[in-house]
Amino acid sequence: MQHRMSRVVLAAWALLGLAGRLEAQPNRGGPPQNFDNVELHLIPVQGNVYMLIGAGGNMTVQVGNEGVLLVDTMYAPLAPRIAAEIKKLSPGMIQYIIDTHVHGDHVGGNEALAKLGAPGASPTDTGGATIIAHENVVNRMTKPATAGQTPTATPGLPNDEYFTPTKDLYFNGEPIFIIHEPNAHTDGDSIVLFRRSDVISTGDIFTPERYPFIDRERGGSVQGLLDALNHIIHLTVPAHLQEGGTRVIPGHGRLCDEAEVVEFRNMITIVRDRVQDLIKKGMTLDQVKAAKPTLDYDTEFGSGDTFVEAVYQSLKNPPAKAASPR
């Protein structure tokens, strides 16, 4: 019976087109066993921006007279319930979806939610919402599993890619900046700045309740991650006495402001400095791990081994500098 159940679950994941994308997320815990048990919480952030917390990555929802814009889409099985939550905010149709990066817990609901979008909204004129992402996300989603095979488009593939350092649009009465952060969590990360609402959606560049996952297989690096976090700190402006002001919606975890991004950046910088020092002393990866450079943060974030390995590897073999300056 157990065996049969496993096959059913595997088949379901294959149908969802998610299995391949989820494998690259160690320490993420994977998708929930039963989506019916997932609680969705929609919380107001500020201006016309809301945050939707559930399973997978956090979603950002911006609403107004022109309709609905989403940043990330969680998992496909949650799409009907996500749509119901959005309807509580706006009767408008989903016009835009912005993918912060390629992982399945952030783009899994693309296809199902895009179908709820306005007919003709997409530049590909297939109906449904426009899905925006950096071109590296599109490349990753269409890359064949085996070299030499014909590329196959994953369902929910972005249909409006950008390759420039930034892309902007004006929607629901506010300027929205989509900013590429090269070689950070992956090589296709975007952060999204809602300029009037004063909110930044970071994707998995910022995960305040866990060590960052630097996806080396998909172009992530510790220095790119730090550059991205420093950029987010540069963009955020706290209100009175370092609190409030620009709100930050992380890839996972609670709603934050600049202060939490600073703490997260500090932790990564300090660990980077330690690993760099150990590399200079000629230590191997195993020796670096044995030195426990994350010992003072493990009581908060759990084992730092995967993080340390990614830091070590990306300092030893940094990615080629990509993209032009902003």
Binding site: H41, I43, Q242, E243, R254, D257, E260
Partner: peptide
Amino acid sequence: PPDYAEHTW
């Protein structure tokens, strides 16, 4: 508030 609510000083 629930765990996912904002933290403050």
